[in-house]
Design a protein around this nucleic acid. Structure first.
Lengths: 145, 145
DNA sequence: AAAAAATAGTTTGAACGTCAAATAATTTGA
DNA sequence: TCAAATTATTTGACGTTCAAACTATTTTTT
């Protein structure tokens, strides 16, 4: 019962705060003109080869219309490059510009630091247990909801 | 290094999923006309005595202007009662209506059920480690930002 | 090959959430 | 008393989201 309370409390607070905090981290960094949403879009585009709109929209679970608006803004701000595919001229290819890559990597570093801070306090054994627990949780959520 | 990657990935996905799930739970419940944001406002108002706009806005970390708009909608939908304070006529007092209380309690129950279901999936050791990790994560955020 | 259907993206209109700055009403304090 | 502070609302702007209408292109059917 006690652990349930702690879990509930921590989870609730974490969830409520995590977006705000991450947003702040993004805004206080070198690239202040990107929103958290922009960052999610950039993460979905990734560092690899250019992706088309539909696949990125599917990753983000938003409509392509929504993604078009986000990409318009990212292109205007210089974080994303957009071009037509030559093979299929319906397709629009998007990829991170140099600036976009830099922002992406800075954000990834923030995430890594966060994980390091958490893991630093745990023994190897505990780390393994935590990993197992989280994977279980994730599976549980996917199955149940 | 590998375990860190897994942790990061699972944590990110978990957080993203839980938000979606919670939103769905709210929308599919008895009170379908409330948004997740509405629910947060109601949680900040709480079941106790009426609160003024400024204190609730501070709890939510939004401006009073933002809160005014949210409360307008909640009053219109019948979840929140709004009245002027008699002692200080600048102050607006807000509290949950009966309908608001019902929605609040239903949401709380959802949370409790979710946590119960999650904890049931884990061994005692996993529970202990998870709790420790989450508290550490929360501390990281509080300290860093 | 022409017509129909499918696919990929964009645009539009509406709703919500947010802020900063301007405004209005009231209370406090010098 | 009257200037300053406090409390809340309004306004204007921007960001996020969706569904539905639309455009352009490719694929399939007849």
């Amino acid at each position: 019962m006690d652990i349930n309370n702690t879990l509930n409390e921590v989870l609730v607070k974490l969830f409520r705060n995590i977006n705000t905090i991450e947003e702040k981290a993004v805004r206080e960094g070198e690239h202040r003109d990107i929103t958290m949403n922009d960052m999610h879009v950039m993460e979905a585009i990734g560092l690899e080869t250019a992706k088309n709109m539909t696949s990125v929209a599917r990753t983000l679970e938003v409509t392509t219309g929504t993604l078009t608006i986000a990409v318009n803004s990212l292109v205007k701000k210089g974080y994303v490059d957009r071009s037509r595919s030559e093979e299929d001229r319906r397709v629009v290819l998007i990829s991170l510009s140099e600036k976009g890559r830099k922002a992406f990597l800075a954000h990834r570093k923030f995430h890594e630091d966060m994980i390091d801070a958490v893991v630093a306090e745990l023994t190897e054994e505990e780390q393994r247990v935590l990993e197992k627990a989280l994977i279980k949780l994730h599976a549980f959520f996917r199955e149940t909801y």
